[in-house]
Design a protein around this nucleic acid. Structure first.
Lengths: 179, 179
DNA sequence: CTTTTTACTTGATTTATGGTAAGAAATAAA
DNA sequence: TTTATTTCTTACCATAAATCAAGTAAAAAG
C-alpha cells in the first residue's frame, strides 16, 4: 500500500521505534492496530498446523499494514505482525480506518485510494499464485519490488511466494545460469 | 462481496438480463464497469500464456464484481467477466465507486464496508493458496460457499482453487471414500 | 427423442516442487 | 577477532498435483 505522501490519518501520531524481530501483533491476541511504516520493514504472517510460516504481506517505508481479520474474528488477530528490520512506525486502532466518514472528505478520498491499491495488489497476488510457476513468481517479485528483494532474506521471499527456501534457491541458481 | 441490502450505488440502475456464457467485459477491452448481481452468477478470470483459464472471483446474487486493474493498466481490462448462469445484473462505471466522497456519508460508509469485506476475502484466498493443500482448499470452499459449490461446474471450482479438473475430481473421490 | 458436445472420472505416467541432510557462507554474538 | 548462530546452497530422494489418454455420464442442441 504505497502512497505519495504519508497517510493523513497517521500524521499526528508519534513514531515509535521497534527492533528487528519485535512482535507488534500476535495471532490470537485481542488487539487491532494499523501500522504506518516510517522507516524499516514490517511483515504479517500466519503459522500453519505444521508450524510453517506463511508471509501474507511486507510493509516497507510508506506502507500500511494491519490485520483485517480482526473484525470478522471476534476481535482476535489472525495474523502476526513483526519487524523484519529495525523500524520506525506510527499506529492507530484499525477501527479508525472505518470511522472516517464524517471527517475530512480528502481523508475519505485518500482511504479509497489506499483500498483501491490494496485490492489491486491482492488481485495481482492471487493471479500470480494461481497462474504462475515458482520462477515466474520470483521474477515478478523482483520486478515489482526491486528494492525489497535485496533487503529481505531469501527465506522470507520464499515464504511470501509460497515456496520453500530450498526451491527458491534452486530457482535463483537456474536464473543465474540462464544469463 | 455480500451485503445485507443491495448497494445504494446501484439502486437506481435498471437491471439487465445476460445469458449464460455472455461476456460483459473482455480482457484487453477499453471499458470499465462494476456489476451488481441481482440474480444468477458472474465470474472474472484471466487466460494465461498456455490458454488456460484462471478464475479470480465468482459473484452470485448480491455480490459486486469488476476489474480494478483498469485504473493501473491504461484503461485496459485485465480480467474477462462473463455469466456462469443466466443472470440479471445492474452496472455502473467503475470510476463512480471512487468518486462518491462528496455524496451521502451513508454511501461512503457502505463503500468502506464493501472494501473491508473484499480485502478480508482476498486475505483468506491468499492464505489458502499459500498454506492449504488441494483437499483443504476444496473443503474450505464448500464450507465458505455451500450454495455456490452445487451450482458451479467442477471444472470452474477447480480453476478457482488453482487445480486441474482431474485433480479436483480425485480429491472429491477421496473425500467420499473417507466418510 | 436422438445426436452432439461438454463435463466428469479414472488409470498410467511425468513434472514441479517439497523434504532431508550436510556442508558453505554469511551474519551476529562473544 | 573468534565463536556461535543463522542463512543459503546443493545433492539426493519423495510426493502432490499435472499431464496424457481413454472412456463414461450428463447436458445442450437439433
Amino acid at each position: 500500500m504505497p502512497s505519495q505522501n504519508p497517510f493523513q490519518l497517521f500524521e499526528s501520531e508519534k513514531p515509535r521505534l521497534v527492533k528487528k524481530g519485535e512482535v507488534l501483533i500476535k495471532s490470537g491476541q485481542k488487539a487491532s492496530e494499523a501500522f504506518y511504516v516510517v522507516k524499516g520493514c514490517l511483515r504479517s504472517y500466519m503459522v500453519d498446523a505444521k508450524g510453517k510460516e506463511h508471509i501474507y504481506q511486507f510493509a516497507p517505508e510508506d506502507w500500511i499494514i494491519s490485520d483485517l481479520e480482526f473484525f470478522k474474528n471476534k476481535g482476535v488477530a489472525f495474523l502476526t505482525i513483526d519487524a523484519v528490520e529495525n523500524s520506525e512506525v506510527k499506529s492507530i486502532p484499525t477501527s479508525r480506518i472505518f470511522n472516517i466518514t464524517a471527517e475530512d472528505p480528502a481523508l475519505v478520498q485518500e482511504a479509497f485510494n489506499k483500498f483501491q491499491n490494496r485490492v489491486y495488489a491482492l488481485q495481482q497476488r492471487v493471479i500470480q499464485l494461481l497462474a504462475y510457476s515458482a520462477e515466474e513468481r520470483y521474477q515478478e517479485f523482483i520486478k515489482t519490488y526491486p528494492n525489497l528483494s535485496n533487503r529481505l532474506p531469501l527465506k522470507m521471499i520464499a515464504s511470501y511466494l509460497g515456496l520453500t527456501p530450498e526451491s527458491l534457491s534452486r530457482v535463483r541458481k537456474e536464473l543465474v545460469k540462464g544469463r
